[in-house]
Simulated assay, not measured.
Amino acid sequence: MSEDVRLYIVTDDPAKASLDVLGCFLSEVPSFIRIVTDAAQVSGIPPGSRCLGYWCAWNGRRLSDAQLAWEELRSFGDPRIEGVSEYFFSRIDEWNAKRRQAECDRLASIVAEYQGGAAAENPQKQRWF
């Protein structure tokens, strides 16, 4: 596990966790966040790391190995994990807002460039704007 990771999300559904917790697709998860899905990865979380457990298919009768490892860390008050505060979530919201604004700005730039030159050359392209 990398030392520059600022948040570990322990989950059984990485795609759903990235959307629900971070507000982005799994392919967009930044490098400072690691999504952990198995017991070996849970055991490898460094001391003092911020961690969040997010379970989509919690089964009361039979837990997965990752769930068992996560519950073991939490139940024994393992000093390796640190909780996630409301402030931390507000920083994730700020990151998402900046990311979305950058995407909007880039798309607006592409549309403006397209409208300025290519649309005038081809009447079929003009109907899209």
Results as ranks from 00 to 15, higher is better:
1 M>W: 04
2 S>R: 12
3 E>I: 01
5 V>W: 00
6 R>T: 03
8 Y>S: 01
9 I>T: 01
10 V>D: 00
11 T>R: 00
12 D>M: 00
13 D>Q: 13
13 D>P: 02
13 D>G: 02
14 P>H: 04
15 A>Y: 05
15 A>F: 04
16 K>E: 11
16 K>T: 11
16 K>Q: 12
17 A>S: 11
17 A>I: 00
18 S>A: 15
18 S>C: 05
20 D>Q: 10
23 G>L: 06
23 G>S: 09
24 C>I: 12
25 F>G: 12
25 F>P: 04
26 L>K: 07
27 S>A: 15
30 P>H: 05
30 P>E: 11
31 S>V: 07
31 S>A: 14
32 F>C: 08
32 F>T: 06
32 F>L: 03
33 I>Y: 02
33 I>A: 01
34 R>C: 09
35 I>K: 02
35 I>W: 03
37 T>V: 12
37 T>M: 09
37 T>K: 07
38 D>F: 01
39 A>P: 05
41 Q>G: 13
41 Q>T: 01
42 V>Q: 08
42 V>F: 04
42 V>I: 04
43 S>P: 02
44 G>C: 07
45 I>C: 03
45 I>V: 07
46 P>C: 05
47 P>N: 13
48 G>E: 08
50 R>Q: 09
51 C>G: 10
53 G>E: 06
53 G>F: 04
53 G>I: 04
53 G>A: 13
54 Y>N: 04
59 N>W: 07
60 G>M: 05
62 R>V: 12
62 R>W: 09
64 S>A: 07
64 S>E: 04
65 D>L: 13
66 A>Y: 01
66 A>R: 00
69 A>G: 05
70 W>S: 01
71 E>R: 10
72 E>F: 08
74 R>K: 13
75 S>F: 06
75 S>K: 10
75 S>L: 11
75 S>R: 12
76 F>Q: 14
76 F>H: 15
77 G>R: 05
78 D>E: 06
79 P>T: 08
80 R>Y: 00
81 I>M: 08
82 E>Q: 11
83 G>F: 02
84 V>Q: 05
85 S>F: 02
85 S>A: 03
86 E>Y: 09
87 Y>N: 11
87 Y>A: 14
87 Y>I: 06
89 F>V: 03
90 S>V: 01
90 S>F: 08
90 S>T: 11
90 S>D: 14
92 I>K: 02
93 D>I: 09
97 A>F: 10
97 A>D: 14
98 K>L: 12
99 R>C: 01
100 R>N: 15
101 Q>S: 11
101 Q>K: 14
101 Q>W: 06
103 E>L: 13
103 E>R: 13
105 D>V: 07
105 D>T: 08
105 D>I: 05
105 D>F: 04
106 R>W: 12
106 R>F: 13
106 R>T: 14
108 A>F: 10
108 A>I: 06
111 V>Q: 11
112 A>N: 14
113 E>L: 14
113 E>F: 12
115 Q>N: 15
115 Q>H: 12
117 G>V: 12
117 G>W: 10
117 G>Q: 13
118 A>N: 08
118 A>T: 10
124 Q>R: 11
124 Q>F: 08
125 K>T: 03
125 K>W: 10
125 K>S: 07
126 Q>Y: 09
127 R>P: 00
128 W>D: 10
128 W>G: 04
129 F>R: 06
